[in-house]
Write a protein that binds this DNA or RNA. Structure first.
Lengths: 186, 186
DNA sequence: GTCTATATTACGATAGAC
DNA sequence: GTCTATCGTAATATAGAC
């Protein structure tokens, strides 16, 4: 089992899910333990009965969130190019750009994982491998799946740093167009 | 002129250049003003004679750094596909992944600009437009240039969050392959 | 123009009551 | 298992000397 046995599992799960939203919105490193714990209705005192420190929470967030993203793509019918394009368009949408707290963890927290301890990166690597493996089944080619992830994560990351919706639409539209071009090369 | 007149310009420029390296390596939000100022041999007291607050420094870093990245691509001969590919391969290299402090500002700080004030995003947008305009001239198509930036930024961001060189090479290699495929569609 | 010193607030983490 | 209270440190920003 993934969580330690006992009744702690429920609180821990809520802590991970709720603090993930805050971390995706404001950033993990700049968010204090008090604020992170409060998202689950807890105090920092309780927090340290679930995690040895902040670093462990980031690893748990990354693992849970990447699993969620993977699940979102897992339902796609491998034979349906249309379903795949709908999922890609949703990822590369203004709605996703506008709501990081509800979106994929990659554009928001990947750059923080890059500065985290090796154990955190190991969790990230394992979870990303599973995500790209699932996407590879749907796309037909594993290498292309990886590139589509990079393209989409980069586009959303950049779009969020832009000031105008006009510029955001340009970046997202360009990414959607290139995603189609890449899928057409198969 | 871009900087206020007087002798302050020199110290300010050093402050921006030096603190950019620290911000790219450790993150901007989690770096204190003391540490940022110290990279230029200054104290926080002196810092506030150059900037009204941290936010202004991030805007200055983003502007200067994106200009540097743009300059790196500006020397490419538009007729030479080979020069373009060399530049893209350098961006999508393990060396770039391993040295964020000396690399492009986009994979490291774009997600922090996303949480910064609108004025910071406005500076980012203007500078990114200039960068993609230059790249558009070299590539031949502005839309494709934007997608190549997104693809490259995403790949480097993700590669840095991975634990093993093996996984990093996979992500970077997949991005290089797709960049070539996209350029071949022209 | 930069320093030292400091005001004030927030941080990560722990101790002990319930 | 969670709370309140707290320790020690570090954050942003300012004041005043030089």
């Amino acid at each position: 089992m993934r969580y330690p046995k006992g009744q702690k599992a429920e609180s821990r799960e809520k802590l991970v899910r709720a603090s993930a939203s805050l971390a995706k919105q404001r950033g993990f490193g700049v968010s204090g333990v008090d604020a992170l714990a409060e998202t689950a209705g807890l105090t920092s005192g309780a927090f340290y009965r679930h995690f040895e420190g902040k670093d462990q929470l980031l690893a748990a967030i990354v693992e849970t969130e990447l699993e969620t993203t993977r699940a979102r793509f897992a339902t796609i019918d491998p034979a349906s190019r249309e379903q795949l394009l709908i999922a890609i368009d949703a990822y590369l949408s203004l709605a996703h750009v506008r709501h990081p707290e509800a979106g994929c963890v990659l554009p928001t927290l990947a750059s923080e994982v890059a500065r985290a301890p090796d154990e955190t990166k190991a969790v990230f690597e394992r979870a990303l491998r599973e995500l790209t493996a699932v996407l590879g089944e749907k796309v037909g080619e594993p290498t292309l799946a990886s590139a589509l992830v990079s393209l989409s994560v980069g586009a959303v990351t950049i779009a969020r740093a832009l000031a105008s919706d006009e510029a955001r639409r340009e970046v997202l539209g360009a990414a959607r167009k290139s995603a189609r071009a890449l899928l057409a090369t198969l």
